[in-house]
């Protein structure tokens, strides 16, 4: 024993060797994720869709609200530049699908981030303090759970008027509940772990224990759940738009486009097929990534 520490002392005196870079659990997970072909393919496709959405105005000679009087409700045609065809008002469907992607992806990401921020903090606090605090906080979640979602959205619309921002709020307000429950459950099992006790014994504050020790350790399931929440939110937004509670014309989302396409499914199939294809593709990709992440973050659970 003494020899060993002498040896290390000697090693140091002889010019300390370079520090060895450790392999964190995150890095392990990343390596496993990138070995998963379905997940990598999905990330590439999602990346392309995102880039298309971001650079939408540069990709088409038409604007999303510009009416081309010569081609009203015409099928896809490469010669006149309406590669996805036009809708009933003569607007280019390609650019409208990309603008729809902007709204749908933004709703998905924003609402999910809101639910992430609130849900993780709320769940971690409830689970960490436990007892009465936990009881009160989780009963509050139960109450919110029992609120009918559609009723909630319609109420918001009535009070504040139709507004894209409200959709973020409404979706975020509902999605964080499940997140909070997941994080609370994980935290309950973590808080009795010895490294949390060690932090206590050292006198680390509760706030720091939650953010330094608990949250990084619950992030695995949270990330998986997040990738599954994004498509759910996109779907809900489409559903709301389909019902006419979503975004306002001339702005559009995939839900609105699908709803318009569904009305004319017999006369102009392309108006349904293209937005539906994009929506389905996006949802598939998110689900594949979620699967890949779950396998990567918890290799024992395959």
């Amino acid at each position: 024993m003494m020899n060993k520490s002498e040896k290390t002392a000697m090693l140091e005196a002889a010019g300390a060797p370079a520090e060895i870079e450790g392999r964190s659990l995150w890095r392990d997970a990343r390596i496993r994720l990138f070995r998963n072909k379905a997940a990598v393919g999905s990330m590439i496709i999602l990346g392309i869709i995102t880039l298309l959405a971001i650079f939408a105005p540069l990709l088409s000679p038409y604007a999303y609200d510009q009416i081309d009087w010569g081609y009203i409700q015409e099928g896809p045609n490469w010669e006149n530049g309406h590669i996805f065809g036009t809708d009933g008002n003569g607007r280019d469907l390609f650019i409208r699908v990309l603008y729809g992607a902007r709204v749908s992806l933004a709703v998905g990401l924003l609402a999910t981030s809101v639910s992430l921020a609130i849900g993780v903090t709320y769940g971690a606090v409830a689970g960490y303090f436990g007892g009465k605090v936990d009881n009160i906080m989780m009963r509050f979640v139960d109450v919110l759970y029992s609120l009918p979602f559609m009723f909630f959205v319609i109420m918001l619309m009535v009070v504040f008027g139709r507004n894209i921002f409200l959709i973020f709020v409404a979706l975020g307000a509902v999605e964080w509940l499940t997140m909070a429950r997941i994080v609370r459950g994980q935290t309950l099992s973590l808080r009795r772990r010895e490294f949390i006790e060690a932090a206590h014994a050292t006198g680390v504050s509760n706030f720091k224990i939650i953010f330094r020790h608990i949250i990084p350790n619950v992030l695995g399931p949270v990330i998986v759940y997040m990738t599954l929440t994004i498509p759910q939110v996109i779907l809900t937004e489409s559903f709301l738009s389909f019902l006419g509670l979503g975004v306002q014309e001339p702005l559009t989302s995939w839900g609105v486009l699908i709803s318009e396409g569904a009305k004319v499914i017999e006369a102009s199939t392309w108006m349904l097929i293209y937005p539906a294809l994009f929506l389905a593709l996006t949802l598939f990709c998110f689900n594949f990534i979620g699967d890949g992440l779950r396998d990567a973050l918890d290799p024992k659970d395959r």
Partner: peptide
């Protein structure tokens, strides 16, 4: 302290599972 308890100090950036 790492040297004192018999750990190689260059292991400082490693993770517990290693």
């Amino acid at each position: 302290m790492m040297a004192r308890v018999g750990l190689l100090p260059q292991m400082i950036n490693r993770y517990p599972h290693e």
